[in-house]
Amino acid sequence: MQLTLFLIFAVLAVAGAINLLIQRHPIYSALSLVAVMFALAVEYLILGAEFIAFIQVIVYAGAIMVLFVFVIMVLNAGEVAPAPKSRVAAWIGLPVLALFAILVIGQVYGAFGATQLGLGEYLVQTGPVGNSLFHDFLLPFEVTSVLFLVGVLGAVVLAARQDKAPKPAIAQAEAEEPKAMAAGQR
């Protein structure tokens, strides 16, 4: 039963990932990733990772991916025409990738082939997670606040509209390289 569940959602996840690659429009790719995440959430549940399964849905699929979709919509990003140049990358990249995949799968299979994971053998509930977070993992938990501050600052620095554009910079630069600076005008 567990194997059937695993296989169903594994197939779903892989299908979602492949769809992500096939789709041309970024919005479909983003939605495919959401599908992958939902499938993975189920896999997490099968593995007894209750807490992770829930935040996978709520935070990852719910919040982060919504941000993606939102940005795609705001930027009105459309399809990008395939250029012949990137095919060159495919010739080099695909064999390398295939080799890598075979290697990794082979390794993990060789190392862990015998281990069986049973349903419900080990359940991680929210309580122990919280306990662990505030004892053993207190430091990383606190430090992630710095990470978020950096994130906030980054968004402010890069994306916020400025009160006033640096006038002299643009004036001088325009004389030298007009087209590169055109975007700075707004």
């Binding site: 990470l147 950096v150 994130g151 600052l153 620095v157 890069l158 640096p166 910079a169 590169a180």
Partner: peptide, 19 residues
């Protein structure tokens, strides 16, 4: 990640510049 993300942002600090 903290140092990397901060550096990503610093790289684009001249945000009106395409380069």
């Amino acid at each position: 990640e903290i140092s990397s993300i901060a550096t990503y942002v610093l790289c684009g600090y001249r945000r009106h510049n395409a380069q």
